[in-house]
């Protein structure tokens, strides 16, 4: 199987409102974004991918990690992360979006993501 993974800066994802990456997903490419998407962005991704569902493209598997919400962090560290995130304009973390035909499941574990193909 030819596996393709595309690393995308969050800024590019946001600028293009995800649309330019839909073709990648339809061509079985897994997308890796260097931030945790907001809930609204996740809903937007689901909406946009649903529009493209066909016999060949059946939708996506999506999951993300949020670094600033890790349970082991102290309150001070959480506050520090909040300030940093306000400054950089994104939630620190990782999001994986994979075509459902390629990625069977993405499990959160809870500070790691596991891809089942």
């Amino acid at each position: 199987m030819n596996l393709k993974i595309k690393f995308i800066p969050y800024e590019k994802f946001k600028r293009n409102k995800f649309r330019i990456f839909l073709k990648d997903l339809q061509e079985s490419t897994i997308l890796l974004i260097d931030a945790k998407l907001t809930a609204e962005e996740e809903a937007h991704v689901i909406k946009e991918t649903m529009r493209k569902v066909s016999g060949l493209f059946t939708g996506i598997e999506l999951n993300s990690l949020e670094l600033s919400n890790a349970k082991k962090l102290s309150n001070f560290e959480k506050l520090k992360n909040m300030v940093i995130e306000k400054l950089i304009g994104k939630k620190r973390g990782l999001t994986i979006i994979g075509p459902a035909k390629t990625v069977r499941q993405i499990k959160k574990n809870p500070e790691e993501l596991l891809l089942y193909m």
Binding site: T38, A39, E40, E42, K108
Partner: peptide, 16 residues
């Protein structure tokens, strides 16, 4: 219950 669909729904309700 810890799947992405549920988390996205709850996250959106919270955010809105």
């Amino acid at each position: 219950p810890l799947n992405q669909v549920n988390i996205t729904i709850l996250g959106n309700l919270d955010a809105r």
